[in-house]
């Protein structure tokens, strides 16, 4: 792919091809989520759904939001926010999983 060759460039331009590819991938992942919701996976359902959602958001963040090509400070910001989000998930599950 074109963007792999020039990652660190400031004014990076992602080709239409890539954008469309990512868009198709997002739609595909959405349909997988919907399909899986219909299959009973027991306690794994939620984790599978969250896993797919995580892949989708990383695609959007990296490509559509240009984080992959931007300065490192933005990655730091993002990692801090992402870390906060994960902690929030874990804490919420401390309620959900142990509820009597």
């Amino acid at each position: 792919m074109e963007y792999e060759k020039q990652t660190e460039h400031k004014h990076h331009h992602v080709g239409y091809g890539t954008l469309i590819l990512i868009w198709v991938a997002l739609i595909a992942l959405t349909s997988i989520t919907v399909t899986i919701a219909g299959i009973s996976l027991g306690s794994y359902t939620l984790f599978v759904a969250l896993f797919i959602a995580a892949i989708k958001s990383s695609l959007v963040i990296n490509i559509f939001m240009h984080i992959k090509f931007d300065e490192p400070i933005f990655k730091v910001f993002l990692i801090v926010s992402g870390f906060t989000l994960i902690v929030i998930f874990i804490l919420t599950f401390s309620d959900f999983i142990y509820r009597g």
Partner: peptide, 10 residues
């Protein structure tokens, strides 16, 4: 109605 485990952690 929060789980007891969670209540202790928080």
């Amino acid at each position: 109605g929060l789980s007891d485990t969670s209540a202790m952690i928080f």
